[in-house]
Amino acid sequence: MSKMSHINVIEKYEEHRVAIHNLLSSILSCFADDKMFEKSDEELAEFLNSLCSYYPFVSLLYLLDAKGKQICMNVPGSQFKHHPKIGLDADRSNRPYYLAAMKADGVAVTEPYLSSVRRELCLSASMKVNNDDSTIKGVVVLDIDLSSMLAILTGDSRRIHFEPYFKAMYTLIVLGLFTVALMLLYAAGVECLDVIYAMMTPEKRLEMPLGVVIYLTLSLAIFDLGKTTLEEEVLLYKDVLRHSSTRRTITRFIAVIIIAVSIESLLMIFKFALKGDGEHIIEAVWIIIAVASLLVSLGIYVYLGSKAEGMLLNNRDKQKAG
């Protein structure tokens, strides 16, 4: 469970675009007025802190004059105090949020872009404020941390705080699996040395080195299981609210089990065939049939899951179009 990539953030933004724009429009239109341009930086900071108690995803607040020149320092939100307080007298007249605000009658919301301060995806909500004589007094701009906003809107903000503990636990489990794989590799190496010694000693009877293959196969299966766990639960981001992520994880784990059990069943067939113990081959055949059934069931699960998700996406697109 890693941090969302920019692609993941943009995909989730597209899913909740209408809700995000409506929320930002309601937030900014409720407090943006001409009195804000008379407040000092300290008063703006106090005001923003009270706003962030309800909306912690607000990262910056700043004011522009009618020509797009910033007339105050960047005021960071309570969750983003590390932001440098800069920006005074900066020319923002060519920025999309200023241009959109000048054309709009209400709140304008930009598309996601990389913040020059945090290098993270953010949105800017802007709104022009008029004087009593209908001339433009300035523009109020809010920068929004998009990842934080999506986490709050989807109810995922609490889980994020536990992610380091989840990652630590999965890491310990993976280290244990890798340790077992190394032990099996060591056992396979010892078995190989015994086989080589038997080949070099004429008086010793050479047996088929099936133990080496078994150890190596088990080591491969356990290592692959640990690798899958490490990638799925520690290194890669997994959206627990989306069924495709769960389907991907289940598919990878079941695939590892199918490969390991298939190899073991083949080894059983070879072992019984070489020893002439044909009466036990049927047991290995039943295992192969079980693996085939598991593979068919996995294919049906993947097909039905992808088809169901496609139907959900189509319904969502129809609702947006309507």
Rank of each mutant, 00 (worst) to 15 (best):
N8Q: 13
P84H: 05
E11F: 02
D105I: 05
H6R: 10
L44N: 12
M4A: 10
S59R: 04
R17A: 06
S78R: 08
E15T: 13
A19D: 07
S26G: 00
I10W: 01
C72F: 03
H82T: 13
A90H: 11
S5P: 00
H83W: 04
M4I: 03
R95S: 13
C30V: 03
N94D: 14
I71W: 08
D33P: 01
N8C: 02
L88I: 14
R17K: 14
S26N: 08
K3R: 13
Y98T: 10
L23D: 02
N22M: 04
S53V: 05
L44T: 11
K103W: 08
D33Q: 05
E15L: 13
V117P: 01
T110M: 14
P84K: 08
Y97G: 11
K39P: 01
V75I: 15
L99P: 07
S50D: 13
N8F: 01
R17Y: 08
G106E: 07
V75R: 02
T110A: 14
K35L: 10
F31Q: 04
L51M: 08
K103R: 15
S2L: 09
A100G: 04
V117G: 01
D34Y: 09
P56Q: 11
F57D: 05
G68K: 02
S40N: 10
V58Q: 13
G68W: 02
E111A: 10
A19H: 00
H16Q: 05
I10L: 03
P112K: 03
F57T: 08
I7R: 02
G106Q: 07
H21R: 15
L24E: 03
K85Q: 13
Y55M: 07
H83M: 12
A66F: 05
P84C: 07
D33K: 06
S50H: 09
R95C: 02
G87F: 09
G77M: 05
D34C: 08
R17F: 05
E111D: 14
L88C: 05
M4C: 06
D89I: 10
Y54W: 02
A104C: 11
P56T: 11
E43R: 08
D65G: 09
I86E: 05
A100V: 00
L24A: 08
H83S: 10
